[in-house]
Amino acid sequence: MSTNLDVNAVDKKIQSIRQIASELKEIGRECPALDRNLVRLSASIKMLELNFSDVASLDA
């Protein structure tokens, strides 16, 4: 079984999560619960990028 995933559409959504996470990181610098959880979230977003965005960027 292969996939019908539209990698470019998936990448777009990933980039919007990345954008929101960056904004939150910026405003959470004095709040450990925000800052430290965003480090974890950012690592998970990176895994999505490795799996999908890096492939999408090959076509760019």
Binding site: M1, S2, T3, L5, V7, N51, F52, D54, V55, L58
Partner: peptide, 23 residues
């Protein structure tokens, strides 16, 4: 039933895989 963890990457053409590796 999906046999691949990531069907996009694990079935990528050889040419694209090599481009990805270079990048």
């Amino acid at each position: 039933e999906q046999p691949y963890w990531n069907p996009v990457i694990e079935t990528l053409s050889r040419e694209k895989l090599r481009s990805l590796q270079l990048k």
